[in-house]
């Protein structure tokens, strides 16, 4: 006989309310996580897509890629297989009256970025939905240079804009920048005159990225914390209501361990069902939300957050359950009907 499930069956409303609250909080957490991840992708997908490695900037750049100028000798000596240099600048292209804000990338030939020839451009596939097709000609408004769209690349974005990959000659002409800004190496840690950053350090050094992510992360973990406190409060209140019954059960010989087990089964059942439903809803949101809304909730993140919810629920309910240990059978008997 499972007393925990019998109690849930008999007191459906009470447990449904707790389940509904857990569902809503976990759904909010999943949606926010999807949004945080989506924004992160929208902001830095082109950098996040790169493998883990070392990002080098000139020392005088003080950790800002916009101020970094790598000299040609360094680039020549350091680049090769899996080592490459790249630059990025914000700009735009036009087609008839339509303007497109883009993040322009150029890189040395060994990079994983697309390498178009002179007079060509490869765009992030999101631009396709804005009416641009392969073969279209786009104009750079400042220089008047014309670029033919030769292809699209998936999930290449930077600073919330679609990426545009161009030839280095074109890039220099558009932005008047001769030197590459960032050197990526797979293994080389120390290069004279350059400062080295890990991928996460490099991402954090990019203006707005860290502030955006920190804000969302704080809200996310605050929600997780709130859910843990809610568990503790709900189960504490339930345990207080059941003090008499627990006391009587202890008096007739029920182990305290069994009362804890009963509470854990209830907590795990409620949390598992609520988190399963909210996880599914979170995944479905990814399909239903408009493309313009940056939302990305990988299954691995969903599972990790679900595990966090289970752990937080367990800790919260166990903490509240400490009261069960303190219940004296005698007090329950003397209090009357349990």
């Amino acid at each position: 006989m499972n007393m925990a499930l019998k109690e849930m069956k008999k007191n459906k409303t009470r447990f449904l309310i707790i389940g509904a609250v857990v569902f809503l909080i976990s759904l909010l957490t999943f949606l926010l996580s999807g949004l945080a991840n989506g924004l992160s992708e929208d902001n830095m997908a082109s950098i996040r897509n790169l493998p883990e490695g070392n990002f080098h900037l000139t020392e005088d750049a003080e950790g800002s890629y916009t101020r970094s100028n790598l000299d040609e000798a360094t680039v020549q000596s350091a680049t090769g297989q899996n080592n490459y240099a790249f630059s990025v600048q914000m700009g735009g292209l036009e087609k008839s009256e339509r303007k497109y804000s883009l993040a322009f990338f150029t890189s040395t030939s060994t990079s994983p970025f697309p390498q178009p020839d002179k007079g060509e451009v490869v765009l992030d596939s999101s631009v396709k939905e804005e009416g641009v097709s392969v073969g279209d000609t786009l104009t750079h408004p400042q220089t008047g240079e014309e670029l033919e769209v030769t292809g699209f690349a998936d999930n290449e974005r930077f600073s919330h804009s679609p990426a545009a990959f161009v030839n280095q000659e074109e890039f220099s002409s558009m932005f008047r920048i001769e030197d590459f800004q960032v050197l990526y190496t797979e293994n080389a840690k120390d290069i004279s005159g350059l400062e080295t950053f890990s991928k996460s350090e490099f991402l954090s050094s990019i203006p707005s990225y860290q502030a955006e992510q920190m804000t969302l992360s704080m809200i996310l973990w605050f929600l997780v914390l709130i859910s843990g406190m809610l568990f503790a409060i709900f189960f504490y209140m339930m345990n207080v209501q059941k003090t008499g019954m627990f006391g009587i059960l202890k008096a007739i010989g029920v182990r305290t361990r069994r009362l804890f087990y009963m509470m854990w089964v209830q907590m795990l059942t409620i949390t598992s069902l609520a988190v399963l439903l909210s996880g599914l809803a979170g995944q479905t949101a990814g399909v239903l939300l408009p493309e313009a809304m940056p939302y990305d909730l990988p299954v691995s993140t969903t599972l990790a957050l679900a595990a966090v919810f289970l752990v937080v629920g367990f800790v919260g309910s166990t903490f509240s359950g400490l009261r069960i240990r303190q219940i004296k059978p005698l007090e329950a008997i003397q209090q009357g009907e349990g």
Partner: peptide, 28 residues
């Protein structure tokens, strides 16, 4: 606790039945 569970029986002023168990489930 073991002695109470196996060797003792208790009846109180109030019945103190477990509210979510049927009569036969209380005995089981």
């Amino acid at each position: 606790r073991k002695v109470r569970a196996e060797e003792f029986g208790f009846i109180f002023q109030s019945s103190h039945l477990v509210p979510f168990l049927t009569v036969e489930e209380q005995l089981f």
